[in-house]
Design a protein around this nucleic acid. Structure first.
Lengths: 151, 151
DNA sequence: CAGATGTCAGAAATACTGATATGG
DNA sequence: CCCATATCAGTAGTTCTGACATCT
């Protein structure tokens, strides 16, 4: 057991990030399973709740997945009657998507479940520590993006 | 106030974790590409550097991937002459793996490249803030693991 | 023409499940 | 018998790379 890979060098943080992401993903999978919902599906519904009328490409960017993956997620959600898509494009080619009433209800339940998971995750931290953590992650992400030649 | 997904609720942290992980992964891909090495391959070599004679199953756990995925990674690395595996098992069925001299050399170069990436990522944080970040991530991960009925 | 979008197709890497076999 | 390991086979979801068409 112990520190598997990193010891006390800089690489410990990349390892810690990977570890918490994998752990959180697994716990969320278990938490959402009773609702017959996958994590990508939850993220899609959550993004739609925040941004009604979003297009497939917008949702894909918000969820950090490709347009193809989001397209398959949307198709599944549409078949389950949780979202509805316009058949014609108001502007350009973008087809706006919305939550159906049933999708809205399921999203509320899912948010409660996921909120409980995140509360457990953050339980060791004080309120100020939670703020610090969020600010640190955002600052590190910005530093990575700005110094990257990628895109 | 209305950003991509999270605003100011708890879900912002799950979103921030996902965002930094995706960003870091992309930057590491670009950084390792000149060495013709993928991130999973790097993680495998790194783990082998820390734990010589590790078995496939041990490496899989350290890298948070399945044994099948690690098995294919090991096969590729073996074909490139970067690692060598025993053909007989000293104990049980575990086949110990080691870095070859060439694998050792490439790992040193990769660690330098990845170390530079992590330094850029952490550049906005002070030394004490870096320590706080690592401790916070570990504490949150432990809280998730301990309150999880999963395994 | 450039840019964003939607869609389709194929290849690749990864994960999951199940089955089989071996050794402690 | 139980458990961990290694391996193989099949299936699935995701990503990537192109390609093409449509609309601003």
């Amino acid at each position: 057991m112990e520190d598997a890979v990193g010891s006390h060098d800089e690489e410990q943080l990349g390892y810690a990030l990977k570890r918490i992401q994998v752990t959180l993903r697994g716990v969320m999978d278990d938490a959402l399973a009773p609702l017959e919902m996958s994590v990508p599906q939850y993220v899609c519904l959550l993004a739609l709740g925040r941004r009604p009328e979003a297009s497939n490409a917008e949702l894909a960017r918000a969820a950090f997945v490709t347009r193809q993956s989001m397209s398959t997620v949307l198709r599944t959600l549409q078949e389950r009657g949780l979202v509805s898509r316009s058949t014609t494009a108001p502007r350009g080619r973008a087809l706006p998507t919305r939550l159906t009433p049933e999708g809205q209800r399921l999203l509320v339940r899912a948010e409660a479940v996921v909120g409980e998971v995140e509360a457990r995750m953050l339980s060791p931290l004080s309120t100020s520590q939670r703020g610090e953590l969020g600010r640190a992650l955002d600052a590190c992400t910005s530093a990575l993006v700005e110094t990257s030649t990628h895109r």
